Amino acid sequence: MKKSAAQYAPRPVRGPALCAVVMLGIAGVAWALRAVWQVRLAVAGVPASGLPDQGEGRHRPLTALENSYHVVSAVGDVATLFCAAFFIMWLWQVRDNARTLSGHPPRYLGIWVYAGWIVPIVNLWFPRGIVADAFRGSAPDRPLPRSVNVWWALWLIGMLTDLGLNYSGSTDAMIARAYSNVSTLLVADLAVVGAAIAAIVMVRTLTALQLERFATDLRTPSGDPLKESVGAFDQD
């Protein structure tokens, strides 16, 4: 028999929130370092031997600075993947908890917690909608925090630029762009860093809100991880 919304057990959110915050911070630092290396490349200028990709399948050996940029870029890519995984894990938990607190089913089907980020067109608003729906389900009497809109606006800037999160070219092509027009790279990098910072505030705010609601409304029994973690983020 299908459960009603009120019959769903609260999902612990402290652990997923901490993981998401840590990974958002790491990803933000990684993208900030990428920006620093791009500025270093721009200041150094194109070597006398020309660009790394010299056309017709020919590539010259990388300089020490170019090689270190490859490492920084790869670390940033890995950090972004882990950040996405932990953020989605947290988002799934708060979505389920909002259903428990409100007594109403979520506005978006569960598949969109994952697919909403990658399906064209809908990825322009579905992820924000899922977060906003979780806020409203958790505290319908409170206004949506500004961090949600700031996070999503900066995310879109970083995603829509052809040099940001959706960039699919080679690292050598990125190096060439840093030599010729670093300002466009920095716009994308700073947007991603800003989105990570805003997301940290957003995660902490929604997590603290749900922990508070479960402690006061549902009166979780002693020893429940939700009750024990109340106050972990209550300074936001």
Rank of each mutant, 00 (worst) to 15 (best):
G76P: 06
D96N: 04
R58P: 00
R107Y: 05
Q235L: 13
L226Y: 00
E228M: 08
L226P: 00
A44Q: 12
P10R: 03
S4F: 09
D172A: 11
A173V: 07
L144P: 00
A178I: 05
F82V: 14
C19H: 14
G169H: 12
N67C: 13
A44I: 07
I197C: 12
T205G: 05
W125V: 01
V94S: 06
T63Q: 09
S49R: 06
A196L: 03
E66F: 09
R40V: 07
W151G: 06
T63Y: 05
L91M: 13
A208Y: 06
R177H: 11
Y8M: 06
G28W: 02
S4G: 12
A134I: 14
P140Q: 11
S222F: 10
L18I: 13
D217T: 10
D96C: 04
I197P: 07
Y69Q: 10
V192Q: 14
I88N: 03
L209C: 06
P16K: 11
V119G: 00
R107Q: 15
A176M: 04
K3I: 03
A191Q: 00
R204Q: 08
A173Q: 10
A30T: 13
A115D: 01
V94N: 01
D133I: 02
A115W: 14
A195M: 10
T220M: 15
S49V: 12
I157C: 09
L24T: 07
G103H: 07
C83F: 08
D172I: 01
V71Q: 06
V39C: 11
G223H: 07
R14M: 07
V72Q: 05
W152T: 06
A35N: 09
S180D: 11
K3H: 04
V182K: 09
P106S: 08
R213K: 15
I88G: 05
P221L: 08
D172L: 03
I200A: 02
A32C: 08
Q210W: 03
F233R: 10
G45C: 09
G57S: 10
M89G: 06
V71H: 07
D189N: 07
T216N: 04
V119W: 00
R11D: 14
W117E: 03
F135V: 04
N67M: 11
Y8A: 08
D217G: 04
K227Q: 15
T63M: 09
M23G: 10
T63F: 05
P47K: 13
R177V: 12
L18Q: 14
W155R: 02
W37Q: 13
E66V: 09
L144C: 00
L109T: 13
R14F: 03
A42I: 08
Q54W: 02
L109H: 12
E66Q: 10
I26Q: 02
D77C: 07
A215G: 06
A195C: 12
K3F: 06
S102K: 08
K227G: 04
S138N: 13
G137E: 05
R11F: 14
A9Q: 12
R146M: 13
Q54C: 10
S138K: 04
E212H: 12
S4P: 00
Y179K: 06
L206Q: 02
R128C: 02
S138W: 05
N123Q: 07
P52Y: 15
A64R: 15
V119F: 01
G50M: 02
A6Q: 14
A42T: 11
G231H: 08
G55W: 09
A132Y: 02
R219G: 02
S147F: 03
W151V: 09
W37K: 11
D234K: 03
S229Y: 01
R14S: 15
